[in-house]
């Protein structure tokens, strides 16, 4: 125990730097994932057939082990000189985030009370007005829940991306294992856990703030 605290005392700056790296990776990939997943989820509510195909594809992506996905991307992205590093990690996290984000958005919009939808239509809202004024606000808690799931998922998978040189807290675990340094592994693991809990908590606050008061 003393040993571990001693390690933390000597390496806190390094751990902090890796945490920042990890958050950058998450920030970039989640922003892009939301920008793709939310509009796609909304669009799918208008196209039932495409919806089942896309949701199935997203489910399949989630079952691919992350190491395998990185492996597949190396030769592809090598053609543009980005086989390892930040870019493949971001792409992987975007792909893994799609299922929770698309599925929750799709369900949120589809689950809006048909009576409310009918009233919105009957009083003369356009399709876009219904979406902005009624369907998205009422679906907000569920959409945000999807983003939270995607975040926690990405924090975990982001650690594995250290193997392809993306940086982040996974580096501590990776190096700790190869050097047989238990304290290093422990520091990385604990930092990732704290990050996951903090992100989930923070997003929950955001969810409450952005969800309309009346629902």
């Amino acid at each position: 125990m003393m040993d571990f605290l001693d390690y933390l005392g000597r390496n806190y700056a390094d751990i902090f730097a890796h945490t920042i790296e990890h958050m950058q990776l998450l920030g970039v990939s989640l922003t892009i994932a939301v920008l793709i997943g939310v509009p796609l989820g909304i669009y799918l509510t208008t196209n039932e057939q495409l919806a089942s195909t896309v949701l199935q594809a997203a489910s399949i992506i989630l079952t691919i082990p992350s190491i395998a996905l990185f492996g597949v991307m190396i030769p592809i992205l090598s053609t543009i000189g980005q086989g390892i590093g930040f870019l493949p990690a971001v792409i992987a996290l975007i792909l893994y985030s799609q299922l929770p984000i698309i599925r929750n958005t799709y369900t949120a919009i589809n689950n809006v009370d048909p009576n409310i939808r009918d009233a919105a239509k009957g009083i003369g809202m356009t399709t876009l007005q219904r979406l902005w004024k009624v369907e998205i606000p009422n679906g907000m808690p569920l959409i945000m829940a999807g983003v939270r799931t995607a975040t926690v998922l990405s924090i975990g998978i982001g650690a594995i991306a250290a193997f392809i040189g993306s940086g982040g807290l996974g580096v501590l675990i990776d190096m700790g294992i190869s050097r047989g340094n238990q304290n290093m592994v422990l520091a990385g693991a604990i930092a990732i856990s704290i990050l996951a809990i903090a992100a989930d908590f923070g997003l929950k606050k955001i969810q409450v703030k952005f969800s309309p008061k009346g629902i």
Partner: peptide, 30 residues
């Protein structure tokens, strides 16, 4: 369609009020 619906009052059984809007916003939606 959109314009004509705004000129016709419409009330349904389950009231169809928008839960995310205040009473004033609901009443003043049209």
């Amino acid at each position: 369609k959109i314009d004509m619906r705004r000129e016709i009052g419409y009330v349904i059984q389950s009231n169809g009020l928008f839960p995310n809007m205040t009473i004033e916003e609901n009443v003043m939606v049209v």
